[in-house]
Computed example of a mutant assay.
Amino acid sequence: MAAKIKLIADSGSTKTEWGLLGAGKPVILKTQGVSPYFQSAEQIRDIFGVELSKQLPEGTVVDEIYFYGTGLSQQKNIELVAAGLKSVWPVAHIEVQHDLMGAARALCGRGEGIASILGTGSNSCYYDGNTIVKNNPGLGYVLGDEGSGAYLGRKVLQYYLYNTFDEELRARFDLKYKTTKDEILESVYRKPLANRYLANYAEFLSDNRQHFMIENILEDGLNDFFFNHIYKYRESWTTELHFTGGIAWHFQDILKELCELYELPMGKILRTPMDGLLVYHA
């Protein structure tokens, strides 16, 4: 019997990483992010049916699809994404889950742990090896997302617009971004996908490590995540803390320092959940 062909998706607001299993060596593909809060049914179908389909090897017949994505805590959003997948692969078995379940399965496998996402947005949960038992509510980039790219990027813009940066950092910002106050406010308050826009400025932090203002933004922002999320799980002191996402990966030294400071058991850090998901679904 031929091996089943499986598509596994890890989708954030900015990009989606796809793993193709069962056709020899696993293949990794990428498309733009799928965000049911901000994209229409037609836009989501085009990502699956056009952007992804043209990257698949010719003649690929997909048997199973496991889609983990942002914004999928509400049933209507799950149905929207599932319908988009079904329109392209009508006979495939389709499972659509919140990206937090994808992170938990990737980081913890079938064991327990605290699984956290620190990417464009942020989220966390206590996972018992099978289900998400506790989840401190994610409030999105306007009210929450502490420690995320959007949260940290907003801090960068605040420091810049409030003239808090010293002359050196302000000059570096101007050289890199060549933007104005009016352009920034237009992008944040009038244009779509403001969370992605804000998250782009987190790169400025990575470029300027060791400057005390940059380190302050990073330490305060990630500490806000610990205080508002990690601290809410009593299991944090007895089971390992695992992290995934670009922010977690690039600033893992600060995460490790915070775990040491608060005497919390540090676990693994993955740049993306995909490697763990490929193992889980294999």
Rank of each mutant, 00 (worst) to 15 (best):
K268W: 02
F225L: 07
E235A: 10
S122N: 00
L222W: 12
Y141C: 06
E235W: 12
T238S: 02
T60S: 11
N208I: 15
E167L: 10
G121D: 13
T179S: 01
P26E: 06
I247Q: 02
K30F: 00
K232M: 04
G138D: 06
A150G: 11
T272H: 14
T120N: 01
D220E: 15
G109Y: 15
I217S: 08
G140W: 09
L258F: 00
L72M: 13
A199T: 06
F204A: 13
F251P: 05
E219A: 11
L20A: 03
Y197W: 11
S116E: 01
A83Q: 14
L255D: 03
E95I: 13
L100N: 02
D174I: 03
I230K: 08
D207L: 10
Q39Y: 04
E79L: 02
G84M: 10
N135Q: 15
G102V: 01
I247C: 03
Y151D: 03
V133Y: 13
L185C: 08
Q32S: 15
D174E: 06
T272G: 02
G49F: 09
Y126G: 01
H281C: 02
A3K: 15
A103R: 09
Y126H: 04
E168R: 10
I5D: 00
L7M: 07
Q55T: 01
C108M: 12
S35E: 04
K76W: 15
G19M: 06
Y159M: 02
V88L: 14
I217E: 05
I94T: 14
I269S: 04
N123Y: 11
L21S: 05
L152R: 02
A3W: 13
G140S: 10
F212G: 08
M274P: 04
L222Q: 11
I217V: 15
N77K: 04
N123Q: 09
E79A: 04
T180D: 07
A83S: 15
Q43W: 15
A171R: 13
T180H: 02
S87F: 13
E168S: 11
F243H: 12
E51K: 08
L218Q: 09
A83E: 13
I117H: 08
Y126W: 08
L29C: 03
L107W: 05
V279Q: 14
N130H: 05
E183C: 06
P137N: 05
N228S: 09
Y197F: 12
V91E: 09
I230N: 09
E203C: 01
M266K: 11
S116H: 00
S53F: 09
G221D: 13
N216S: 13
E260L: 05
S187R: 12
S236W: 06
A2G: 07
L185R: 03
D145A: 00
D99P: 09
Y141A: 06
W89D: 03
T16H: 04
R172G: 00
R110E: 12
Y231E: 01
F225I: 01
L255E: 05
A106T: 02
Y126F: 07
Y141N: 09
T244N: 13
G153Y: 12
Q43R: 11
L258R: 02
L52W: 14
G109C: 12
L278G: 06
I132G: 05
A23T: 10
E260A: 07
V142S: 04
G153E: 13
A82S: 04
K191Y: 11
Q55L: 03
R234C: 05
F251I: 12
G113R: 01
L139H: 10
N223P: 03
R110L: 06
I5N: 00
K54E: 14
A248H: 07
S40F: 14
T16R: 07
T244R: 11
F67V: 11
A282R: 07
